Amino acid sequence: MRFIKRLIIGFVMVIILGICLYCYARLIEPNMLLKKSYSVTVPKDVKELKIVFFTDTHFGKYYPQEKITRLVDFINEQKPDVVIFGGDLIDSYNRDQELVNIEELSKSLKKIKASYGKIAVYGNHDYGGGAEPIYEKVMTDGGFKILRDSELTLSDLNLSIIGYDDYLLGSVDPNRYQLPDAPFRIVVTHEPDVIDNIKANGSLLVLAGHSHGGQVTIPFMKGVLRPGAEKYIKGQYDLKETITGCDATMIVSEGIGMTLKPFRFLNPPNIVVVSLKHK
């Protein structure tokens, strides 16, 4: 009888634990919004500044558009000099058209304030799911400059930013991976594994997303790995050995929203704040 009683108690505890984990991953963690801060050393001729990087909002079925108000306010609280969006604005435009008002989305994005400009790149969901015809308009109406295998020079900051087209569904020019010599530049790419193709000299800061950090991560496991984010999943990476002759750092964000399933576990939504500082 004691064995049966213990078995029943154990079974009930497992069920309770399962319910608690489900509620946390479904209702609590997805509604968080955190800040991850990093500091990167830059040459003295590059102006010290603050960058806010956010990515993978996936507005739609699993992450309602109404949450953008809190996101915009949180970004503005950081008083950024430059704001960069890493792609995947809407989860599936064809499926979620009734849930996403693109005009209101642009108006909300326009409220994001940045002293020296706002920049965006394409993600795979900005091509797939029918989003390609509207993504550029939404972002440009929101005050963002889209970089698509192109480079933007902010002369006042002595800073160059390269944005790659989406690696999976875009049309990346392989020649763009060979970067001309420069003391320091920023590279923005949706898929982080692209970094293994880059050749550069000087110093480099790479900002990427796509992985969601695995979105649902079981301890001691990597979570759900996505093509283009199987090697670099989340956090900061020292790439000195990856890009020979280059002092390179990459930061991979877990992003904001969700895709495939409405769960996050051990990967709370966050924005990335990078302070560029002199030694």
Rank of each mutant, 00 (worst) to 15 (best):
G60I: 00
L34E: 08
V42T: 12
K36M: 15
L49T: 11
H58I: 02
L49D: 08
M32Y: 10
V52K: 06
L49N: 15
I16M: 06
K47A: 12
F53T: 07
A25L: 01
P43V: 14
I51P: 02
C23F: 07
L27A: 08
L33H: 06
K47M: 06
Y22H: 04
I19K: 05
T41G: 07
V52F: 15
K36Y: 14
G60F: 00
T41V: 14
K35Q: 06
L34A: 08
I16W: 09
M32T: 14
F59D: 00
Y24V: 11
E48G: 09
K61W: 08
V40G: 11
P30S: 06
N31D: 13
F53E: 04
L33M: 15
R26H: 06
I28A: 00
M32H: 07
P30K: 01
V42Y: 12
G18M: 00
M32F: 04
I15C: 09
G18R: 00
L34K: 13
I16T: 05
G60L: 01
F54W: 02
V46Q: 05
P43S: 06
Y24T: 02
P30H: 02
L17A: 03
K47R: 11
L49R: 09
S37H: 10
K47H: 09
D45F: 15
V46K: 10
M32G: 14
N31T: 03
P43A: 15
M32V: 04
S39V: 14
L17F: 11
I28W: 04
T41L: 13
E48Y: 02
L34H: 12
E29M: 03
K61C: 05
L49Q: 08
Y24C: 02
D45I: 12
L49E: 04
L27Q: 09
V46A: 10
V42Q: 14
K61P: 14
K50S: 15
C20K: 04
I19P: 08
L17E: 00
R26F: 05
K50Q: 08
C23R: 10
Y38R: 13
E48N: 04
L49V: 12
K44P: 10
C23G: 13
K61V: 13
C23H: 05
V42D: 12
L21I: 03
Y22S: 04
Y24S: 04
I19L: 09
L33W: 10
Y24L: 03
D45C: 11
F59S: 01
V46M: 13
